[in-house]
Design a protein around this nucleic acid. Structure first.
Lengths: 234, 234, 234, 234
DNA sequence: TATGAATGAGGTTTCATTCAT
DNA sequence: TATGAATGAAACCTCATTCAT
């Protein structure tokens, strides 16, 4: 937790430290990120960092938290716009599109997310992922619960299994297009050949088949390729 | 890639190097693993390591490959015993049980797998995961293809999406019971409350619902809990 | 020397600073003692310490002085009770017993004494020991002078040599039982095998033989061990 | 203990490291001595020091050992020249003169001795003093034992108390002339006013009176000052 | 082919002190 | 008078890699 000194700090200095730390941890992760570099880039003395944060891990946790909240606030705003009361898998499709687009446009957040996912230091990774997972679930669970109460999910749908899969799919969709080798099957990391949007629809189709109400129909994947008016008929 | 010197090396010396390197990388991962330690424990000169491998990354890739092959050979043997011609999702359930049990009993392989998954160094992680994914797919794709040709999968099943999900689920099932925070939903890391076996069945139920032939029924999870018999009626 | 600000300070604040500084310097000595820690534990601002004392060394000297005076006042009170007009070496024996017991029961003063003795920083050590030595001598010299004027010491006794030896023996007796390796001969640091009381008597016997009046006899060490009665015949 | 690498090292490089380390530890002691400085002055890479010694403490212990042995070898040679079979306290007087002169002429050894005596780090101090004390005793005990068997000491002399006092007097005589405040009574540190030689004689007179055979007379201190001839009559 | 000595940059953290408020 | 933010030097130690033998 940041010190009181940090909370009393002027906005400019704070912004400089946050920016430098985000850049460094995004580039090299926690273990390999260097406080020397952060201090130098922020234009503050090395010792000052320790007036603001208990230690390296404390700074890292703070940076991760700030980043997670930024993503969450953004997503929550977009969720409201997307109208979460629509048929769930339609909504989910749009949501994942937004998600993919966000990380496409925010390389810094993408890198922070990756750094948190791949951290070697067990304690650092665990505490950071706990934060991230909490954010994920606080947003997703209400959406899923509402969907089930609306009847968009099967009555016997294993909601926790759905959430568990989403917890894997979300980081995957965010990172795979930029991390070679993460997805050797669907080709997410081969940007030229296939659109992430298509992969989103393939995953949603799977989830819909697994959890959706039998009567509910899913927008056909063809809707992307240009001919799809028969879509809502099957 | 190991040098020719390595290939000409006596078996004993080779085994010593491999054992020391596996232990070190399993314990500390690639970035934090120390060649000094490996050389000392293997009883060879530090310089010798550089006669056998181009650099640290080369050694790491080799060690990962060796480990992956060990796991793969084991799994292939068990797959033959499990009779892959049975109904696919029955077979898959047993396969995942074996998988979970293997990593429960082989902490070194589990640690190597985790080290590869969490490596910060991008290049190291990418090259290692490429190897691991290749092994996964070379085993899984024939099984899945056979299942489809046998009619165990729906005709329009998105086989690649299934493989993609399996590529996420396999490491998850192997590591989550031992890595705090990986699974905050299904409780895989809370060994006392829920059996990995049950989680396996929940995941397979999802996959079966998504990809299975409509007519094919899955062994109900009720076999473990005893009450949800309506599940196999959908 | 403390500033005038210090002298005008409220008693509570002063006590807090003294207590924190004593604890810190006792635990880590001057060089390794931390003003940060002292300020934090005393509940005052770091800057305040520099309003009360010129610098770290000044604070340290003050703390040592306070501690020395505490010990000195205690010893002076006990000296009056012990009746310094008795035969000198009888009295000295009791005095040293009291001395040893005091430090046995006051670990904080013991630690401060040790810290002063083992300080690496030459200037700090010199100034601190000057204070301590002054206290020692102001107490001891009158006692020794009285003893000589009473005829308890030989007429030609080298009083200064006696004081010089006492200045070595007193810290030794105070610390050796708690500092491994200080006394590899008489076994003061091996509490189980020999009592400090016996060591006191052996040292006093030496001093008595060296400085005592020939006619004056010393209580034989046999009072503790019970057999060497021929000792008092020399 | 130095590594094998150290033992295989060329003489020139070894000498440079030893010289630099002796100078640094002599000047600042163990805790405050800097490996950075040592490496720079020795003209070797910082990392090289860690190829020769396990850590800072290891290097310090080695340096202290080397220094102690140097002093011991010198003293043993001089002891043979001084004829230890002479009357003990005559011999002891000469021995202490030599001792004082040695440290007067060898400021480096003096500083190392001081550094070892005043080290704050308990473990470092303990281990170093154990070495020094061992050297002291291995030299002194045979001398004292011989003296007693020759009849130079009283039959009932407390030999261990004598050794214990010598263990205090020897460092005192070596260092006090150069460390302000160590001796506020006999004025050892006030070089202009009184000769260390006289102090030696005053201490020896005390020891002789305490431990010497009654019949044995000591060379009167008058030999230096010229008037106290009544001293040898007690 | 094997060795292992040498390198020196880089890591995090603590510290006493200053000074503007 | 009290505060506490800022400083930046210095600390020990580890590391992968090179190269002469």
């Amino acid at each position: 937790m940041p010190t009181v000194t940090w909370s009393r700090l002027g906005g400019e200095r704070r912004a400089a430290v946050v920016a430098a730390a985000e850049a460094e941890f995004a580039a090299h992760g926690f273990s390999a990120g260097s406080l020397n570099v952060i201090a130098r880039r922020a234009g503050v003395a090395k010792g000052s960092l320790f007036q603001y944060f208990a230690d390296k891990r404390d700074l890292y946790a703070y940076i991760t938290d700030v980043g997670s909240q930024r993503v969450r606030f953004y997503m929550e705003a977009r969720i409201r716009e997307l109208d979460p009361t629509r048929p769930f898998f339609d909504f989910l499709t749009d949501l994942l599109d937004v998600w993919v687009a966000y990380f496409a446009e925010h390389p810094r957040d993408r890198a922070l997310h990756a750094a948190a996912s791949f951290e070697v230091d067990t304690d650092a990774r665990v505490s950071v992922r706990a934060v991230v997972h909490r954010h994920y679930l606080e947003v997703l669970r209400p959406l899923v619960d509402d969907a089930r109460s609306r009847g968009d999910l099967r009555g016997d749908a294993d909601v926790d299994a759905l959430l568990s899969l989403l917890l894997m799919l979300l980081p995957h969709l965010a990172l795979a297009p930029y991390v070679r080798g993460m997805d050797p099957v669907l080709g997410l990391d081969d940007l030229s050949s296939e659109q992430p949007a298509l992969v989103v629809r393939r995953y949603v189709a799977v989830l819909s088949a697994a959890f959706g109400c039998v009567c509910a129909s899913l927008p056909a994947i063809t809707t992307i390729e240009g001919e799809k008016h028969e879509q809502d008929t099957f």
